[in-house]
Nucleic acid binder design. Structure first.
Length: 271
DNA sequence: AATGACCCCTGCTGGC
DNA sequence: TGCCAGCAGGGGTCAT
């Protein structure tokens, strides 16, 4: 679920309910997340929320008493619900708000995290300080990506999924973007021509941006008890379609593993 | 420095 | 129907 678009959609969905609200209570039901939830998390009780930002797939909740760093991992979800809503399995954390609502975190696999930072984490926190540029900003350019790729033997797919290179390109969008750009996922990043990066960079931006727009469906369902949308499934050209026909040339799509992740491509369209 | 393997965890699917 | 292997949208850490 949480690709960059989903995280951004979550941010847009929760931000209006959080900003300006006082945190009346912090409820931690299970501390066993990616890292143990620190006791310092509870110190934001009584603080007022100033805003919610996103950096890569991290959400940063700014409060008058410090910053919360939230990651959804593979299966995490954030919802704004009435504070007395029935707690279900895997509801690990609540931020109870003065409005009577609460921000509720559910995460079956517990790969997500909730951490506290006294200072703004984007520049100095170990998890955030080494991150590459945001793909949807002007910092992510053809020249940047091309220069970063020179000398790299690594497969281009793992290269564009590397958060040091560019953040937020998850497995789905790496597959889809390389297909649209006509680039074979195993090709060495350093051997892809500048002309092909010139195609790839805007394709990554467009693919992510459109998915955020589609995430609007999730946004509408946001306060409902459960919304399990499959809204970009119908747009996927290769992801999850191994063995099926290429939508462009009808060749059989190949599925391989690259960096422990399923990788699907068209051997005809992608070189 | 760069690269790849491994692991964290639960839930779902597909094969037998 | 039940059981089990394999896989899942992330990413930090460690060994090479």
């Amino acid at each position: 679920m949480p690709e960059l678009p989903e995280v951004e959609v979550s941010r847009l969905g929760i931000s209006p309910h959080l900003t300006g609200q006082q945190i009346t209570q912090v409820i931690v039901r299970d501390r066993r997340l990616r890292w143990p939830v620190p006791a310092s998390l509870e110190t934001v009780a009584g603080a007022t929320i100033e805003g919610v930002e996103r950096r890569a797939k991290y959400l940063i909740i700014s409060t008058t008493k410090g910053y919360l760093i939230v990651h959804l991992g593979m299966s995490g979800a954030l919802r704004v619900v009435p504070a007395d809503s029935l707690v279900v399995k895997h509801d690990h954390i609540d931020l109870v708000l003065g409005s009577g609502l609460c921000l509720r975190f559910n995460d079956p696999r517990r790969f997500g995290c909730w951490l506290f930072s006294a200072t703004h984490p984007s520049a100095d926190h170990p998890l955030l300080r080494e991150l590459g540029p945001e793909p949807l900003t002007d910092a992510f350019t053809l020249d940047y990506l091309f220069n970063a790729s020179r000398g790299r033997q690594q497969a281009i797919k793992t290269f564009i999924m590397d958060n040091h290179v560019v953040v937020g390109v998850g497995n789905i969008y790496a597959n889809e973007s390389l297909f649209k750009a006509g680039i074979h996922p195993k090709r060495a990043a350093g051997k892809v021509s500048k002309a092909r990066y010139q195609r790839l960079v805007p394709i990554i931006k467009e693919t992510l941006a459109r998915a955020i727009e589609q995430g609007g469906t999730t946004l509408q369902d946001f306060t409902q008890a459960d919304g399990q949308p499959g809204y970009f499934k119908q747009e996927l050209m290769v992801y999850g379609r191994g063995g099926k026909a290429c939508m462009q040339c009808k060749s059989t799509l190949k599925e391989i593993r690259l960096g422990q992740r399923s990788t699907v491509y068209c051997p005809q369209c992608q070189r």
